[in-house]
Design a protein around this nucleic acid. Structure first.
Lengths: 356, 356
DNA sequence: CGTTCCAAGTAACGCGCGTTACCCACAAGG
DNA sequence: CCTTGTGGGTAACGCGCGTTACTTGGAACG
């Protein structure tokens, strides 16, 4: 029986349209008084008695404030908008989760609008502008743009009308504040982990060398090696498609090229999907992980990293944290505070599992 | 230079607060006239000339309607709300995508609010009620509830105040319309595919036998076998945790139990993660896929299915379609149309890859 | 020339609420 | 007795827009 749930709410709540005036009438006061107690106005002089009378009336009638009307009158919506192709390509949903949670804590609402920037020639060309426009029609107080992978983007003009923060991407032609993962530190920490395990001959399965992720992670790897008095052997860096097949193929090349002691004892795969492929290449050659070859990944794609056998040690992209930080930054901006930094780097933590 | 983008939008657009009155003044007409042309009113008698004059004014001033005010005056928000733990556990984000896209087509907006029903003892207990409440404050015209996995749920009382549709879940104690995958047909189609490939001895890696997914899929499998004049050998059905490890272990058990001709030649894994584990178990025993053992999965978790080697043939859960159908159903309800059906089943299509 | 009718608009009210200015009774102070 | 607060409220305006009723100038009609 559903009868047992929240019996405190009376049936009258079901009839829509209980307004502040109704509450006022029921409590025998003016609408203004109701407004004052409901918005917890500081210097309002309302006696404790009528205050409770009003609250009782609210309960009795099942009054529910009308957010739209409130926004209209107060000229502030408590809404942020986020436009993102994540809805379309759900690789980095955790950004939304982080942002959503943070917004919720701040008693704000997040309007999610779809974008398709990823495929600029797709049928939804212009969807992004439309989405931004729609959000502005809702009078959002700030805008977030989130990308599925770290890259430069072009933000619609109209985004300038309201504070804007970029998440997991950066403004290719302007100076909007942005929040991106610290790829370099991530690459460093990954290689440091391998060094700590005693590996000195480390192969790198690289991504498309031009994207920010590849540049940063490789740079970090180089730093770690240099700090240990080693060099990054260009011979040991091979690129491939950012897929399992690409990783399989690239790992195969590097493993077949060397024998015995010359063979690298560890592979740094610049993303988890490639690590997944590398696993197969290693196993096919009768080698074990991490016994013969240690593997470390990047991205921490749960479905892969946590389910590979052995489970993959990898560096996590801080999606959730970036989302939350985005909202916090936006809150600061809309409150009129100065921008904290043009670009904020968020740490990529190492997740120890069993492949090193 | 950002200067090259959308030069059509004048700088004046940046000053907020261009209102309909401004447009009217600029066009030399009344505000009513502006309202009429902007809302494309049918029987409004506005001459073609003033109509264009008004449109020009809109362009010139960069007028943007205020959705909140419009909602207030027209008493319809064009918003649906969706509350879901998907934000928290992004397994089935495609539901949101499907719903979002459909809503966008209908020129409606989807407000996404988080839930945590999945872990009822979590710190966010009651979050769901709060989310619903918040959505109702926004005066959404309808509500969607979406779950990450097919199951029964309890919906907050207040959801009754407005048309409500459940996606990927069903009302455990009421009669709200719901949309769920046709697990049985999915199980059937999976086994039919194996039968078609000539397999008659089929092992089943089962989930927790109590959840709807397991019940339905197994039932479907049985149907397919019966239709082929075969029986579902209970010996060949083994359960395990719904993880890669669970699948590895269960598949190992089943493979080690039989030798030679008695060994099943195909495995129907009731989800892809278990299939992922089964792959390892099979390969470790020196068997090939699909040569020695064919494998078919369920769920179509892209990250797994598309990247396993060989790629996994599996049955897809129609998340996106369910989301879209949910919005369409909601649209029908809010338009006053009768409920199409208490529970709508959505097809689970077979995705052929290379493991059968 | 008076009436009718219609195209082309406009005045004015209300949506539900925040907010500012104001009011009033009463007590304290001089 | 008159002033001056002060606690406890209220009247009224405006937020930006949809909508209904009303107006007006001219053309058609008899």
């Amino acid at each position: 029986m559903a009868k047992s749930t929240t019996p405190s709410k009376p049936a009258s709540a079901r009839q829509r349209g209980v307004t502040m005036t109704d509450v006022a009438k029921h409590a025998g006061v003016s609408r203004t008084a109701v407004s004052f107690v409901l918005s917890n106005r500081e210097n309002a002089s309302i006696s404790e008695e009528t205050r409770t009378r009003i609250n009782d009336a609210v309960q009795a009638l099942g009054y529910r404030p009308n957010a739209g009307a409130r926004a209209l009158a107060s000229r502030r919506s408590d809404w942020y908008g986020i436009v993102t192709e994540i809805v379309t390509a759900p690789f980095a949903v955790d950004i939304i989760k982080g942002a959503q949670d943070q917004a919720w804590l701040d008693r704000r609402f997040l309007l999610v609008a779809p974008s398709d920037q990823a495929d600029a020639q797709g049928p939804n060309q212009g969807l992004e502008d439309a989405a931004t426009e729609k959000l502005l029609e809702q009078r959002v107080e700030g805008l977030l743009y989130a990308a599925t992978f770290h890259r430069g983007v072009h933000v619609p003009q109209s985004a300038n009308e309201v504070p804007t923060v970029l998440i997991n991407c950066f403004d290719a032609d302007g100076k909007l504040p942005s929040i991106v993962p610290d790829e370099r530190a991530g690459g460093r920490v990954a290689v440091e982990r391998l060094l700590k395990a005693g590996h000195t001959r480390i192969g790198v399965i690289n991504l498309d060398p031009d994207i920010p992720a590849a540049v940063g992670r490789l740079e970090g790897a180089r730093e770690a090696l240099t700090a240990a008095g080693l060099d990054l052997d260009p011979e040991l860096v091979v690129s491939g498609y950012a897929t399992a097949d690409g990783g399989y193929e690239a790992a195969g090349r590097i493993l077949d090229r060397y024998q015995g002691e010359h063979r690298p004892t560890a592979l740094f795969c610049l993303n988890d999907r490639m690590a997944m492929g590398a696993y197969d290449a290693i196993k096919e050659r009768g080698l074990t992980i991490p016994g013969d070859i240690a593997v470390i990944g990047f991205d921490n794609q749960e479905l892969i990293a946590a389910y590979l056998r052995p489970k993959l040690t990898t560096v996590a992209l801080p999606f959730e944290e970036m989302g939350a930080l985005g909202v916090r930054t936006l809150a600061a901006l809309t409150a009129g505070q100065p921008i904290i930094a043009d670009q904020q780097l968020v740490d990529c933590p190492l997740l120890e599992r069993s492949s090193v």
